[in-house]
Amino acid sequence: MSVPPYGGSAVDRPVIRFDQAGLTYPGPPPVTALLPFDLTIQRGDYITVVGPSGSGKSTFLNVAGLLDAPTTGRYFLDGIDTGALRDSDRTALRGRRIGFVFQAFHLLPHRSALENVLLAMVYNNVPSAEHRPRATQALERVGLGHRMHALPTRLSGGERQRVAIARALVADPSLLLCDEPTGNLDSATADSVLALIDELHLDGMTIVVITHDPQVAARGRRTVRIKDGRLTEPVLRPPVHLPGEAR
């Protein structure tokens, strides 16, 4: 798979650039789910995406996550024109460059936390010798080094979501794409998961969070609003600082 030139170094290149990208589902009658829009997400950015039910948030997630392709415009991921790729190359790119975190966790109940994270590398071309060290490191990164052999049924909701985050991080993706990551958690547990996402952002991870919760949306550096398939200009906020961090 070739990587078309985009200008600048890999470090300077945006992780995401939408250029008049939109999506219309075929009919009859055709349904426009996303009107053409421009959006650039720089490396290390933290974007939250909000909007009412049926506004186009899920469609945006599917397009950003390479699950659906825009029907108009172009989508560049790490400088790669995704519309120019074969389906197999899009799938491979998604596996290498995007980590997904979902509301429902999607963990295999009869596999340990470690095994769930290990399985994420099967289709990512990670050398087999690196699988276990990477999975162990990812679980330690999310604070679950002491629970890696536990089954999901023996973990709390917050711990299960941390396993899901470790699974998303294990292949060292360019983008962490989260869909309502605290939707199944109580307030205290949700705060701890959001604090972990804040830490990942401060470590340099590029993060996009889809949410209906204004408090979750406020954690991001920028908020994109979607209504009736139309994206509005993002709101820019001051940088997030963790307690005790130098300002």
Rank of each mutant, 00 (worst) to 15 (best):
M1E: 01
S2W: 05
V3H: 08
P4E: 12
P5V: 01
S9P: 10
P14K: 06
V15G: 03
F18A: 15
G22P: 00
G22F: 00
P26C: 00
P29H: 00
V31Y: 00
A33W: 00
L35A: 03
F37C: 04
G44E: 13
V49R: 01
V49I: 12
G56M: 02
G56H: 07
S58T: 15
S58P: 09
F60L: 15
N62I: 01
A64H: 02
L66T: 10
L67V: 14
T71H: 00
T72A: 11
I80G: 03
D81F: 11
T82N: 13
T82V: 13
G83Q: 15
L85M: 14
D87Q: 15
R90C: 14
H106M: 11
S112I: 09
L114D: 07
A120H: 05
A120P: 04
N124Q: 12
N125F: 04
E130Y: 01
A135E: 07
Q137F: 06
E140V: 08
V142F: 10
R147I: 07
P152V: 03
P152L: 04
R154T: 06
R154E: 14
A168I: 07
D172W: 07
D172L: 07
L175H: 09
T189A: 15
I197L: 15
D198L: 06
E199F: 05
L202Y: 07
L202Q: 14
G204T: 06
V209D: 04
T211P: 06
A218H: 15
R219F: 13
V224W: 07
I226A: 12
I226K: 04
K227W: 12
G229F: 00
T232D: 15
P234I: 05
P234M: 05
P239V: 08
